[in-house]
């Protein structure tokens, strides 16, 4: 076989029989080095001026605005906090006891740790809530004000109603929906919002209501509360929605983060004894609806972790990872 066959393949013109011949081990090394040269010297005929104008410039301006906005909101939050503190102190001075939390909504659900919950809203939208989530909507929801608030993780299947957009509010981002299904992770303790669109179209809004981007199916948007950065990427959506079926996939997650999640799902307390263990990365899938001791066995077999279960009467079970 000569080089010309390989070139034919690289240019996409080789027949199946010729490709088979190239793949034989005699030529593989040569093929790899040629392919590298080919890839590094490749180009395409895209109109970079158009792509710049229509895609890149538009998208970077959005992320920049978003970043600036978050700097402002963090100042705003401090001011609001001062006001709030002032009010609580005043109220306590007047009444002599702690203030009570008032819900501005007519319906609120708190899913206990270790449980999941299914809801159907008045408009036919279904919501599956993962454990430790909070979900609420106001009394005027029925009149077409489709606005809900959430914290934690939820999978939405929103009923189509072009007249009345459906809005989901989380602590740091809002989402505007046009009849669609998607998954949101926005647990308070994790400092991140992670939203994955399965089908339809989903607008991502700043807390002030400005639309920054619109997701297309298969896209995931991540907002990191620490770095204040926003990243959009294409993902394998199964990973983000499999929790509904009880399947959980970890993709190189730190054991310390996994422990936080397990605490939520099983309502236990986990203490990691070895700091090195906390940073270990784990890749694998578990069945969440199995008893916790079975799950721990799986971890024991597939990572360097060992565990000890300490039942505590009247309190949550304590588990040591060592």
């Amino acid at each position: 076989m000569d080089h010309q066959q390989i070139i034919k393949y690289l240019a996409g013109n080789a027949s199946e029989a010729e490709v088979k011949e190239i793949s034989s081990s005699d030529h593989k090394a040569e093929f790899i080095s040629l392919k590298k040269v080919y890839a590094l010297t490749a180009t395409s005929a895209e109109d970079s001026k158009r792509v710049w104008k229509e895609e890149i410039a538009r998208r970077i301006r959005r992320t920049d605005n978003l970043r600036r906005l978050y700097t402002y909101t963090s100042y705003a939050a401090i001011i609001v906090l001062f006001f709030a503190l002032g009010m609580v102190v005043q109220k306590q001075l007047k009444s002599g006891r702690g203030s009570e939390m008032v819900y501005a909504s007519n319906m609120a659900v708190d899913v206990p740790l270790g449980q999941m919950s299914n809801l159907t809203l008045p408009d036919g939208t279904t919501v599956q809530l993962n454990s430790g989530s909070h979900f609420a909507y106001a009394g005027n929801f029925k009149e077409g004000e489709r606005v809900v608030e959430m914290e934690g993780e939820a999978f939405f299947n929103v009923a189509k109603d072009p007249e009345h957009p459906f809005v989901v509010k989380t602590k740091s981002l809002d989402f505007k929906v046009y009849g669609t299904s998607f998954n949101i992770q926005a647990y308070d303790g994790e400092n991140e919002v992670n939203t994955t669109l399965i089908e339809g179209s989903l607008g991502v809004l700043s807390k002030s209501g400005k639309e920054y981007t619109r997701l297309v199916p298969g896209e995931n948007i991540n907002y990191n509360g620490t770095s204040k950065e926003l990243t959009v990427k294409n993902v394998n959506t199964d990973i983000y929605t499999s929790w509904q079926k009880g399947l959980i996939t970890f993709r190189n997650e730190k054991l310390s983060d996994i422990a936080k999640k397990m605490e939520r799902w099983y309502n236990v307390e986990i203490q990691i004894e070895d700091p090195k263990l906390a940073d270990e990365l784990y890749f694998g899938t578990i069945m969440k609806n199995k008893p916790i001791d079975q799950i721990l066995e799986v971890f024991k077999m597939t990572s360097s972790l060992d565990y000890r279960i300490v039942p505590r009467p009247g309190k949550t079970t304590l588990i040591y990872w060592e």
Binding site: G12, A42, T43, A45, E46, K49, I56
Partner: peptide, 23 residues
Amino acid sequence: FKAHYNPVVGFCNQFLSDHDKAA
């Protein structure tokens, strides 16, 4: 962007054989 965009698209396309995805 203008200097590097097309080479990067070409690079990806070499492995994906899908121009839109590469872009």
